[in-house]
Simulated assay, not measured.
Amino acid sequence: MPHSLVLNLLPVAPIPSQFLTGRHLHALFLNLVSAVDSDLSAYLHDQSNEKAFTLSFFQVSRQEVAKSSTAPTQKRVLPAAARPIFQAIQWEQKQAIRENTPIWWRISLLDDSLFDRLTQLWQQLNFESPWHLGPTNIYITNIVSEPQSNQPWVNFCTYAELFDRASETERQIAFTFCTPTNFRQGVYDSAMPSRESVFGSLANRWNKYSSIAIEPTFIEAIFPSFFDIRTEVSTDSRSKFIGCVGDVSYRIMGDVNPVAIKQINALADFALYSGVGRKTPMGMGMTRRLQNF
């Protein structure tokens, strides 16, 4: 069952910027999993491609910073004014995140066969004990797993429901690429969101984790109708990642049967959970479908 949820976090000391990279957050997620299921953590770590989860970068809420600097002795629940609302997604923190700054962190899960084990993870997490990111202790204040009006990155749906709900008539498909997105083409990378790259990436992940096969034989019927994108670079001490961010709208053209249109719409809806392109388990390729574009 694809599930996109948000962890609300509170650091009790500054988080230096060098510990806010995708690989550090990837390691933190595996540590969370390992705390309740070490075998599952090892399995997720060893997956070589199309991993069963995606992550965002830490998102700093633009709300009043929590005043308290003492470590919690019980589960913390932020006041409503400090809970995160939707905002432009951040993919690079040039400065340290200050102590007591509310943070939200999106995690999506794709594998039906692992869903029950991953669900137990959230039920067994200890809210009273800190987690470590570099030199900093971080507390999980709560987990948002049900859709919220102010948090469009939270949702869940089975693959069958995603497919059944997909439109058989909607021909306009629009995406917003919220973090740098690129695609492997042979031995090189491309930051251009071509129809083959975007829908091929979605179909590969869908087919790996869903029992409803979608063969992307319809790609030649998809044409870009609008784009407002730019290249962005995300760097850390090890690498430079060049990708695109912005909005692209595609249109289904010609005589296309309703089943193919439904498949295209199902993949577009799936993008919320799967992202597209490379390094989605490290925050890249974070993508949402835009409605009424």
Rank of each mutant, 00 (worst) to 15 (best):
Y139G: 01
Q148D: 12
Q95W: 09
L25V: 12
S149W: 07
T235K: 15
L109K: 04
S41Q: 00
L162W: 06
T136R: 01
W153K: 04
F156M: 06
L202I: 01
N292A: 04
Q59Y: 08
V256N: 00
I214V: 03
N182C: 14
D269Y: 02
M192L: 15
V36R: 09
M192V: 15
G277F: 11
L78F: 10
T176I: 14
A166H: 09
A174R: 09
K67E: 10
K279W: 06
S61P: 07
I173M: 06
V154C: 03
A27K: 12
E92M: 14
F127M: 05
L110A: 05
R205T: 12
I140T: 04
P193M: 14
A221M: 00
R98N: 10
T21A: 08
D236K: 06
I143K: 05
R195A: 10
P135A: 15
N155H: 07
F241V: 14
L109Q: 08
V77R: 03
S167L: 13
N182F: 11
T181K: 13
T141C: 13
V33G: 08
S194C: 11
R23P: 08
P180K: 08
V187M: 15
S113I: 06
I214G: 04
E220D: 13
Q151F: 04
S48H: 09
D269V: 01
L20N: 03
I242H: 05
I212R: 03
Q63I: 15
M1E: 01
Q47L: 07
Q263N: 03
L109V: 13
P216G: 01
N137R: 13
Q151H: 02
F58W: 00
R205Y: 07
R230C: 11
K75M: 01
V12C: 05
I103F: 09
S113H: 06
S225H: 03
F218T: 01
Y43H: 03
T21C: 09
S145A: 11
K279V: 10
I229V: 13
T158F: 07
K94H: 08
A42R: 05
V248P: 10
G285C: 03
G254E: 00
N204H: 02
L202Y: 00
W153L: 13
S145I: 11
N126G: 04
V6D: 05
F57A: 14
S113E: 06
L32Q: 02
